[in-house]
Each structure stands twice: as structure tokens, then as C-alpha cells.
Design a protein around this nucleic acid. Structure first.
Lengths: 225, 225
DNA sequence: TCCAAAACAGGATGATCATCCTGTTTTAAA
DNA sequence: TTTAAAACAGGATGATCATCCTGTTTTGGA
């Protein structure tokens, strides 16, 4: 923002490597999410973070190293906070999934636009670009699925009766969320999250049960952004 | 190389605007799928298609115009051939979905690698980049969902018995496929497609508690076409 | 205090990219 | 045959990009 006064030579500099690294990661996480990896130039990132080329290069020698740090430190923790912790705290895997879907849908609707799932956004762009990217992203998907499967397994043991295979249920939950977010991002409408949750909870069978289903109102005006 | 009747050394050029346009679209479709939009340079595309800059610029003035053509002419028809037509020909929406999942899984397994869903790949990278991209991609998602919903609606009328809302079922099917393909691409393993299909067909319920809930009977016998 | 390493500054560099421009050849209608 | 537009060739151009390089300042032990 502003530097030293004009007349006084306040050339005092305070090193703050952790803070500077954090600012770069903040900006990179945001830009990768909004514009993607290839569309985010490090020049833009430098300007947005207020960081010089030397400083950025000191902390992240290459753009790839920066992206890897974003994936491992930010995307992973976003999945952890949004999905893994809530599911572990929920009464059951099924209920945890429902709560996350509803929480995300509500957040997107109040926010008014959809930028998509950070993990899926980067996974689509980078999985085939570099094996290191791919492995880092695959690990996050794996942890995500595992957390849901663990919860479902615990449910099964507590309830005594076995339902669907926990691993399969976890794969389904992650897939539905990922795909619904893709559609929500493209349509800029979070309503599809509710549609999918609704279908999931009704048994996912198109013609197996008569009964009441209700249509939910979409709060977002289509066509915005 | 003596196919020309005249032995003059005048290099005859034959204009083939449609063929040249097709070659460019072929190469662009392939590269956008494998590397993405931003990672595909038009220089690479020119070399791969054997086309000069002037010719490429004549047919596609900008890279954006080329991508829009790929989306509208290639991605849309890929979804049509892979999903819409098979679902319409299937015995039911549910069965059509199952057949597509299995066909894609089998193809990916024999192929040995996973490049992902063309629509989702471009949707993730381009939906937020440009409103024209976003609308073109949203239209394909919409047609995809609509085809499945129409089929499910027809099933319901034919069967008399009403199940889940056809629109919701369609959203779920597209979401599960999209998300499963994202995971398959990142893991480079198509097995998750089978996991998700398995979970879908078992009712998507992770555990039933103490016999309070019974597995729902599905109207359709397996194996009918 | 001294000094080496870490932290930071900021310009340089070469490569790459999408687009544009001028000119030539082909095509089809007049 | 004439002619104008379409089709194609291929280099030019300026912008952008990621990385590197040289130098300066700060920091934390010794």
C-alpha cells in the first residue's frame, strides 16, 4: 500500500517470512480457485500479494512448487474443514453428507455465485499435467472418501445391520458432490446440489416408490455473473 | 508419389475448407481434452494439424472461437453419442444409466488410462473464464439432464408407479457420472465408476438401523433390455 | 561485534503466445 | 475470360510469461 515517507530515509525492512509466505498462498489459493492454474500469472499473484519477484522466488522457486503448496496446505485443509470434520461429528455418515450438502448450498446461495470445488477445479486442470500434481490431488480425494467410509463403517457396527458397502457409499457421496458442484458452477446455480441430495435420500431409484417429493425453490437468479 | 497426371513441378494447391476445418477441430478437441484449453497453444495445434497460421485464422479468428466450435460441435455430440442416444434406446432410464456407466468403465479399462469427461474437463476450466463458454457448456449439461429426465418420466408413465422425481434422478445421474469421472481421472483408475454405480443401484443408503428400514425392491428385473 | 545465511528487492532474459498483416493461389459466378 | 471473394501461406509483432540473476538488507548465532 504505502511505503516510507518521502523525506526520511526509513529504509527499515522487517523480515516476515511466514507472513509473506502466507500472503502468497492466500492470493494463489484464491486465484487458482477463481481463474485456474494456467490462467493465473505469477505477475498477477505478485501484484495482488504485494510481493516482489525475489521474495516469491525465495519461498516458491517455481510456479509448480507454489501450486503444490496450495494443494497440500490449502485445498487439503479446505476438504478437511468442509467435509471430513463435519462428517466425523455428525450422527451418521448419511446425516453428515446431508448436512454438508445443505450447508454448502446455503452458503453458495447467500453468496450469489459459485466458484466450484477447489479440489475438483484443480484436479481437472492438473491431474494430467504432472504426476506430482496428480498424486497430491488423488491423496486428498482418497482421504475424503476414507473419512466418509470410516463413518459409514462405524454406523454399521453401531446399528448392527449392514447396508450398502461403506466404501461404495463414500465413493458415491464424493462423486455426487463433485458432479453437482461442477453443474452448479457451470449453471451458476446451487439448486442442483439440493436436487441431487433429494434424489440421494429418496433412494436414487427413478421409478421405485410412489410418494411425496417436493421441489425446492432456487434462490439464485440464473444468468448472473 | 506420382499421382499427378501432369509432371510439372508447379505445386498445385487444392482448397478443402471443410476438410481443413475438420482437421483443426479434430486436433483441438484432442488437445483440449488431454491438456486443457490454456495449456494448448495454437502453435502446437497448427503443427499437429499441419495447418498454417493463415488457414487457421481464416476458419477460427481467435482461440476462443475455436474452443466455442469444439464445445458446440464436438463436446455436445460426444455427450449425445455417449449418453443421450443410449439412454433413449435403453429399456428404462435406470437401465440406460447403468449401461453407460458399464460401457465407459469397460472402455477406460481396456484403454488403460483416463482422460476424463470432455464436458466436465472444459466446464471446470472455462465456466468462469467467459460467459459465452459458460452458456455453451451449461446448455450441454442441460440437454444431458433433460434426456435422462425425459426417459425417467416416460418410465413412470409406462409403469404407472411414480418414483423419484425424474428431474432429480437425472441430476443425480449426471452428477454421479461427472464426479466419478473426476476421481477416475485423478486416480487414473476407472474402478470408482463401478463403485458408484454399485452404490447407486443399492439405494444409496449406507446403513439401515436395526431392521427399521428395509431394502427397497426395484421394479425392474436385472438384465432386461 | 562479526559473519554467514536467510530474506528480500527489482530488473534482465529468453521463450512463448495469440493475433495480425501482406501477399498469393484457388474457386466460382458473371 | 474476367473478376471478386474465399482459401491459404508464412512471417511480423507486441504482449506476456516464468524464471533467473545480481545486489542489498535483515537476522540469528558465535
Amino acid at each position: 500500500m504505502n511505503d516510507s515517507p518521502t523525506t526520511t530515509r526509513s529504509r527499515k525492512r522487517t523480515n516476515d517470512p511466514e507472513g509473506m509466505r502466507k500472503r502468497v498462498l492466500d492470493v494463489a489459493e484464491e486465484s487458482f480457485q477463481a481463474r485456474g492454474y494456467h490462467a493465473s500469472s505469477i505477475g498477477d499473484l505478485m501484484a495482488a500479494a504485494g510481493v516482489t519477484g525475489g521474495a516469491l522466488h525465495h519461498h516458491f522457486p517455481t510456479k509448480k512448487a507454489l501450486a503444490l503448496a496450495v494443494i497440500e496446505e490449502r485445498v487439503a485443509s479446505a476438504v478437511e474443514e468442509t467435509w471430513i470434520a463435519p462428517v466425523q461429528l455428525a450422527g451418521s455418515a448419511r446425516e453428515g453428507v446431508r448436512m454438508v450438502f445443505e450447508a454448502v448450498a446455503a452458503e453458495l446461495e447467500s453468496q450469489g455465485f459459485v466458484r466450484g470445488c477447489p479440489l475438483n477445479n484443480l484436479a481437472h486442470e492438473l491431474s494430467l499435467a504432472d504426476p506430482e500434481f496428480r498424486m497430491a490431488l488423488a491423496g486428498i480425494f482418497s482421504a475424503w472418501r476414507q473419512a466418509i467410509a470410516d463413518k459409514a463403517r462405524a454406523d454399521r457396527q453401531a446399528g448392527g445391520d449392514g447396508g450398502i458397502d461403506p466404501e461404495h457409499f463414500a465413493a458415491l457421496a464424493v462423486a455426487v458432490y463433485s458432479g453437482a458442484m461442477a453443474m452448479a458452477k457451470t449453471a451458476q446455480d446451487a439448486g442442483v446440489l439440493r436436487d441431487c441430495l433429494n434424489a440421494l435420500e429418496q433412494g436414487a431409484s427413478p421409478a421405485s416408490r410412489g410418494g411425496a417429493k417436493r421441489r425446492r425453490r432456487v434462490l439464485l437468479r440464473p444468468g448472473t455473473l
